[in-house]
């Protein structure tokens, strides 16, 4: 049964050897030519399975991978019956929101500490289940300890808050960076934050003064 038609893949909820499982199938994209499309889908399927597996081994909540089928660019994984952070964030109290964001920061920190990059951090790629946040959708991720890639990871989640959760962007992002710092330590955290600012300045139409204030933790 198709439960979600995302931009990246279709999600089906099926019985797999007697257990409830999610079948994530990266569908061919009509707009992309075949040569490009096949390569992208296959690479991401492999990456995602590897990264989820590695994330789990260092204790980051993420669905168990049951099987992958490279021909069909499909991953079969555990069904996690939670709610997306995107939806959770709109309801709870202010303190609860901050706590959630602090936890998100910690998770990203743990991931970076383990030499991984998520590559697509948004509030719809995280699920809250039994008070734990599960990370999903590692298809754009990588194994890397590169400062630039860590900076981009934080930029992506910052952008998600700015665009989709703009009403409480500042306190939420401040809590997130606090959680991140707690996990990776003062030194790495300040390097990554500095790189994040550099990446933003490199972009179109940004100037020093206007961005600076956003980062007070």
């Amino acid at each position: 049964m198709l439960i979600k038609k995302g931009a990246e893949a279709n999600l089906y909820l099926e019985k797999w050897h007697g257990i409830k499982a999610i079948i994530k199938k990266r569908m061919p994209k009509k707009y992309r030519i075949d040569e490009l499309d096949t390569k992208i889908r296959q690479t991401r399927t492999v990456r995602e399975a590897q990264l989820i597996h590695n994330a789990r081994t260092v204790g980051i909540p993420s669905p168990i991978i049951y099987a992958i089928d490279l021909e069909k660019t499909t991953i079969i994984m555990k069904y996690i019956e939670g709610i997306r952070v995107k939806d959770v964030l709109n309801s709870p109290t202010f303190e609860k929101k901050q706590e959630l964001c602090y936890q998100i920061g910690q998770l990203i920190g743990q991931l970076h500490n383990a030499g991984m990059i998520h590559g697509d951090l948004t509030t719809s790629n995280m699920i809250v289940f039994k008070n734990r946040i599960y990370l999903l959708d590692f298809g754009l991720g990588d194994h890397s300890i590169d400062l630039e890639e860590r900076g981009v990871d934080l930029l992506l989640i910052k952008r998600a808050f700015q665009s989709a959760h703009y009403k409480y962007f500042k306190p939420c992002f401040a809590a997130l960076t606090k959680g991140y710092k707690q996990e990776v330590g003062e030194e790495i955290s300040s390097e990554v934050m500095k790189r994040l600012r550099d990446i933003e300045r490199r972009g179109r139409y940004t100037s020093r003064g206007e961005l600076h204030e956003d980062y007070e933790v």
């Binding site: 952008r159 989709a164 990446i199």
Partner: peptide
């Protein structure tokens, strides 16, 4: 809510 919100853009 009174603004154009940027969801994605070029980084260079």
């Amino acid at each position: 809510d009174r603004r154009w919100r940027v969801f994605g853009e070029t980084e260079d």
